[in-house]
Simulated scan of single mutants.
Amino acid sequence: MSEFLSDADFTRFRDLIYNESGIHFSESNRTILESRLKERLKAEKIETVGQYFSHVRSDQEELKVLLDAVTTNLTRFFRNAAHWQTFENYVLPDLVKYKREKGDRKFRVWSAGCSTGEEPYTIAMQLLDLLPPGFDIEILASDLSLKSVLTGQQGFYPDSRVTGIPEKPLAKYFDKKDGGYQVKDSIKKLVTFDYHNLKHDSGKRNLDVVFCRNVLIYFDEPAQKVVVDRFWNAMANHSFLFIGHSESLFGMKTQFSFLKTDWACIYAKDV
Score class of each variant (00 low, 15 high):
Phe10Pro: 14
Arg12Pro: 00
Phe13Cys: 04
Asp15Arg: 06
Glu20Cys: 11
Phe25Asp: 08
Asn29Asp: 14
Leu33Phe: 00
Leu37Glu: 03
Leu41Cys: 08
Ala43Arg: 13
Ala43Phe: 13
Glu44Arg: 08
Thr48Ser: 14
Val49Asp: 09
Gly50Trp: 09
Arg57Trp: 05
Asp59Met: 01
Gln60Thr: 09
Glu61Ser: 12
Lys64Met: 06
Leu66Trp: 00
Leu66Asn: 07
Asn73Glu: 04
Arg76Val: 00
Phe77Asn: 03
Phe78Met: 10
Arg79Ser: 03
Ala82Arg: 05
Gln85Thr: 02
Gln85Asn: 12
Leu92His: 01
Asp94Asn: 10
Val96Cys: 03
Gly103Glu: 08
Ala112Asn: 08
Cys114Lys: 05
Glu119Gly: 01
Thr122Asp: 01
Gln126Arg: 07
Leu128Ile: 08
Leu128Pro: 01
Gly134His: 04
Asp136Glu: 11
Ala141Met: 08
Leu144Lys: 00
Lys147Gln: 04
Lys147Asp: 13
Ser148Met: 13
Val149Trp: 06
Thr151Ala: 15
Gln153Ser: 09
Lys172Val: 05
Asp175Val: 14
Gly179Thr: 11
Gly180Thr: 12
Tyr181Arg: 12
Val191Trp: 05
Tyr195Pro: 03
His200Cys: 10
Ser202Ala: 15
Ser202Gln: 11
Val209Gly: 03
Val209Tyr: 01
Phe211Trp: 09
Asp220Lys: 13
Pro222Asn: 06
Arg230Glu: 10
Ala234Asp: 12
Asn237His: 11
Ser239His: 07
Phe240Trp: 15
Phe240Pro: 13
Glu247Trp: 05
Ser248Lys: 07
Leu249Ala: 11
Leu249Phe: 14
Gly251Thr: 14
Lys253Glu: 15
Trp263Phe: 15
Ala264Gln: 13
Ile266Gly: 02
